[in-house]
Amino acid sequence: MTLSHNDLRQYFAGIVTGEDVKNNKPAPDIYLHALNVAKVDKNEAVIFEDAPNGVESGLNAGIDVVLVPDQVMPSEEMIKKVTGVKSLADAVPLFE
């Protein structure tokens, strides 16, 4: 509803929620389902996550993860497996 109200729905191939999958994060189900909905391969996708369960879920799905800082950070071991940014603006050069 928020996307439609703000005229942003057109920028999304589909909307996937935890209700669409059997197992929620940190299981990879939601991201694998999103790939299917968007009709893209995991090598063509990137996940922006701020939560440890989300980071783990993305890594479990085999998709590149960009970690966006939040109050609760993933473990140092998990941080070593992702690309970290200080803000979303810092992620722009990753895709230029």
Rank of each mutant, 00 (worst) to 15 (best):
P26V: 10
V85E: 04
I30D: 04
F48I: 00
E44Q: 09
Q71R: 13
E49D: 03
E44K: 13
M1H: 12
H33V: 00
N23T: 03
N53L: 15
V82N: 08
V68G: 11
K42H: 15
E56H: 14
I15M: 03
N6K: 08
N36F: 00
E77K: 02
E76D: 10
A13F: 11
S4T: 12
M1I: 06
L94N: 07
G18R: 04
V37Y: 11
I79L: 15
R9H: 01
I47E: 08
S87P: 11
G14Q: 04
G62W: 09
A45E: 13
K81H: 07
Q10N: 02
E96A: 06
L88F: 10
R9W: 06
D7T: 04
E76Q: 15
D29Y: 02
M1G: 05
D50R: 05
K25T: 10
Q71T: 15
A27L: 01
I47K: 11
T83W: 04
N23Y: 03
N60Y: 03
S57M: 05
A45W: 03
V46M: 11
E77T: 03
V68P: 14
P93R: 13
V55C: 05
N60L: 04
A89L: 13
N23G: 00
H5P: 01
M73S: 14
M73C: 11
L94H: 14
D7R: 05
E19L: 08
S4I: 13
T2W: 00
K80Y: 04
M73K: 10
F95H: 14
V72K: 12
V68E: 06
L67P: 03
Q10Y: 01
V82C: 14
D50G: 09
A89K: 15
A91D: 12
A45M: 07
A45H: 10
Y31Q: 00
P28V: 01
A38R: 08
V16P: 06
V40I: 12
L59Y: 01
L67F: 15
L35V: 08
L94W: 11
V82S: 12
E76K: 14
V72N: 15
E49K: 03
H5F: 01
V16C: 07
P69S: 13
I79E: 06
K81F: 01
P69C: 12
Y11M: 10
L8M: 15
E49S: 12
G84M: 12
N43G: 03
A91G: 02
V65F: 06
A13Y: 04
P52H: 07
D50C: 08
E96I: 08
K42E: 05
D29M: 02
L94F: 14
A61G: 12
K39V: 00
L32F: 01
M73G: 08
E56V: 14
K80N: 06
D7G: 04
D50M: 08
E96G: 04
D20L: 08
V92M: 10
V82E: 03
V92K: 15
V66C: 13
A27K: 02
V55S: 06
T83Y: 09
D29R: 04
V46G: 12
L35C: 07
P28M: 01
K22T: 05
L88S: 06
G54N: 14
Y11A: 04
A89R: 04
L32G: 04
P74W: 02
L3E: 08
P26F: 01
N43T: 01
